[in-house]
Structure formats: C-alpha cells, structure tokens
C-alpha cells in the first residue's frame, strides 16, 4: 500500500486505480462468461430473425424491414401495446405504493410480526391456479365478494373481468395484491438502514414523520429505484396472470390482450417467429429507452452513499 503512495510513475494496472479496475472486472467475469455462453447467442439470433420470415419449419428468409413495416400497420400491435401501457402506468406506481406501505407497516416493533409478514407474502407463494380461481370468485359480478361488499355500501359494482372497461383494472388489482415480492425487497431495504441514524435523530428530537422524511425515504431511494426499474421491465412483459385469467384469449374482445400474449400467439400459434421477434425487439427498445431515462433522472432523487454509480 505504501509503495503506491510514492510518487514514482507506475504502469496503470499497478496503481491503486488499476488494481481496483482489475478486481472489478474479475468480480464481474463469471457473469460475463455466463452471458456470453448462454444468453448472447440467442439474443443475436432473435435479432437476426426479426428481419426474417421464420415459420419454425423452413429456413429463415431475409425480409429486410418488412416485419417492422407490417407491425406498425397492425391494429392489434397498437391494441396490445395500449393495453400493456395502461397496466404499466397504473400497476407499477400503485403496486410500489402498496408494497412500500405494507413494508413500513411490517417493519414495526409489534407482536407476531413474523406471522404477519408471512401472511402478506402468501399471495406470492400459493400456486397461480389457486389464486386465479379465488379471484374469479371474488370478482364475480353478481355473486362475488367484492361486489357484495360494494352493494352493502350502496354501490353497484362493475362486471370486473367480464367487462371490457374493467378487465384491465381487475388485473391491476390482482397484481397489487400479489406484490409481496417487492414488499420483501422494501423490507430488506428498511432493515438495511443503520439503526444509529434513527437513534441520533431521536436524540435530536425528530418525530416519526420527520424521521421518515429525512432518514427512511432518502435511504430507501436505491430500493425504490430498483423496484421502479424492475417494475417497468417486468410489467411490460406481463403474461401468466392475464393468460390464466382469460384462458389465453386476452378477452373480453382483446381488452386484456397484452403485448406478450400477442408475441406468444405469433410465435407459437401462428408460426410467425420472425414477426414475433420484431415485436420483441420493438418492446426491447421501448423498455431500454425508459430504463435509460430512469437512470439519467435518478441522480436527482436517488441517494447513494458512494460516488461510483450513476442511477
């Protein structure tokens, strides 16, 4: 260590900075190897296929931009993109808000905390068939629990999953309910905050609202940022929930036809893997741009205790 401090010029790799860089690359190396061997090839292949006609049987034929041209004139492309955007715009912030509040609630010093936490995580654990069946009963327009409760309040409930107007909100509701995964991440984030900060703040006489505002919230920004970025990436690719609840049809009348169901249909039902790949790459670009924007704007609100990362 002391040698580095001396002023004699050294090859960059031998400097402190150089050693740090080498360590950095070495630590990332396993992932890079895995990525190169298992992921990169298929990604390149699908990129290539997006410019081709590939029906899973015949050799792919080069089409140029024809898939993309067709895509932008396909009305179901817009329908499915709109359905997906609708869900992303509402489900991501609402899901984060709900799971953050749950995490705050579950981070208190109360009896039976472990049991509560487990309870709130159950929707993420039980098999999809069980929760889908349950939701179908809950959202049943005439006999369901939810509309029963609403009518008790004097409100005429909607048709939920059966209604074109309410099918997307129904799915969003279900997603929020099953956001136990991000709750767990928020909980871990809350536990990561050094207790000394709160102790110091209490000595300073800060009330709980202030402590939340000046300690919890700023220190939670990296976790919030993570859930936001992953929420956008994941929700754009929503598939299983909708598939199970609508029998794969994306109904009623395409109102829940999300982008990935349409990709899936083209790829494996209509034998149009090339077209499906072009759809996937359009989605890729959209998600990538949104993610980059999030990283660029992160420096204004995400608090890191380090200067080496952006976003």
């Amino acid at each position: 260590m002391a040698a580095v401090m001396r002023g004699t010029p050294k090859p960059w790799l031998k400097t402190l900075r150089g050693k740090e860089a080498i360590a950095c690359y070495l630590f990332i190396l396993p992932w890079i190897i895995g990525f190169t061997v298992f992921t990169l090839g298929p990604i390149i292949a699908s990129f290539g296929l997006s410019f081709m006609d590939y029906d899973l049987v015949l050799p792919p034929k080069f089409l140029g931009l024809a898939n993309f041209v067709e895509l932008f004139s396909d009305s179901l492309f817009y329908t499915s993109m709109w359905n997906t955007l609708y869900i992303v715009i509402l489900a991501v912030p609402l899901g984060m808000l709900a799971s953050f509040m749950m995490a705050l609630l579950l981070n208190q010093k109360v009896r039976g905390l472990a049991a509560y936490r487990t309870a709130y995580f159950i929707p993420s654990i039980v098999p999809a068939v069980a929760s889908a069946a349950l939701w179908l009963y809950v959202l049943q327009p005439e006999w369901g629990l939810l509309n029963g409760f609403l009518s008790w309040l004097g409100i005429q409930g909607p048709g939920w999953l059966a209604s074109e107007a309410w099918s997307k909100p129904s799915i969003i509701l279900l997603m929020i309910w099953a956001s136990g995964g991000s709750m767990i991440i928020f909980l871990a984030g809350l536990q990561n905050i050094p207790k000394e900060y709160y102790e110091a703040a209490e000595i300073d006489g800060a009330n709980s609202l202030r402590r939340f505002q000046y300690i919890t919230l700023p220190l939670m920004t990296p976790t919030i940022f993570f859930n936001l970025v992953m929420g956008v990436i994941g929700t754009f690719q929503i598939f299983s929930v909708v598939f199970v609840l609508t029998d794969g049809m994306g109904g009623p009348v395409n109102s829940t036809l999300v982008y990935l169901i349409y990709i899936y249909r083209n790829a494996f039902n209509y034998f149009r893997m090339g077209f499906a790949s072009s759809m996937a790459w359009v989605l890729f670009v959209i998600i990538l741009v949104l993610t980059l924007i999030q990283f660029r704007t992160a420096r204004f609100w995400v608090h890191y205790d380090t200067d080496t990362v952006e976003g």
Binding site: V129, Y137, E142
Partner: peptide
C-alpha cells in the same frame, strides 16, 4: 351477455 358470461367464466376458467 357480460353478466351471463362472467357467471360461467367464474366456474369455467377456474376450471373447478
């Protein structure tokens, strides 16, 4: 149609 369909869907899609 909406209500009727929701009725059978509840049983049909849940498969139960």
């Amino acid at each position: 149609f909406e209500l009727a369909n929701a009725f059978s869907d509840t049983l049909g899609k849940s498969g139960m």
